[in-house]
Amino acid sequence: MAGLKRKDILGLREMSTEEIDLILDTADALKDIATRPIKKLPTLRGKAFVTLFYENSTRTAKSFELAGKYLSADAINISISSSSVQKGETLKDTARNLEAMGIDAVVMRHPMGGAPHFLAKHLRASVINAGDGMHEHPTQGLLDMLTIRQRKGGFKGLKVAIIGDIFHSRVARSNVFGLAKYGAEVWVAGPSTLLPAGFEELGVKVTTRVEEALEGADVVNVLRLQLERQEKALFPTVAEYSKFWGVGPERLKLAKPDHVLMHPGPMNRGVEISTSAADGEQSVILEQVTNGVAVRMALLYLLLGGGDAA
């Protein structure tokens, strides 16, 4: 009998390889649902969850919503603008009210790190972290890992290069935490103002030279550059960023010929990633999206599929 021995999915940092394997295996088994004619399984019929998003996101919220609907669960979406956070109901009260209405899980995206951990302590329902500030985005980390596993068979010894604004990236953190557990050789590269402290201790190589990270890479994961960071003296212009750290066909020649190119989306075409690379043969960006639905289905199944004995 399988099953996750936890109520919530808050991050990859604290998960074991057994748990991650279970999630990826389950996602693999569920993946075909989204591509067959009848996109419906009765498994979570009668279960309800809410996507509670304090930050704008269409794709992740919709991905969760679809994942739930494919499993016959009921999903409602709540989108709260950041200004209402200050003026309105506290997070704790919002979630408790939803739980009182019979919600089985809350999928939350929040601008502050640790918010899902805070919520999980106050709810009996399951909490799935859909991104907490700069901390983690575990479902993205899992779908990235699933994509890598499908294409490369495993993680051990793979050179994975993550390029971009690592400092502010929860996608980078989740990927780093997850991949480091499996013995992958992880490199992060970006401008020095956008590189984080402490990653070296996880065995990650940190460099400001994107060429060094790309050299012989099996996997290249390009992160989105948030253009607002320009205003905070973190980089001067997108032109300069693109020139020094942009990923395009020329730079990708340094990677292995059969490398896979990933991007969590949405892309700034021409800034961090060139259009030809994004649409090229090595790009698995759309597979990531499909895998995203599969991973989210897997998590919903594993957390909500059983009885209340948990």
Binding site: M1, G3, A29, D32, T43, A298, G306, G307
Partner: peptide
């Protein structure tokens, strides 16, 4: 399924 405490492992069809 709801009578089980741990959900069974899913495999591909």
């Amino acid at each position: 399924l709801t009578e089980l405490s741990a959900v069974p492992q899913v495999h591909r069809s």
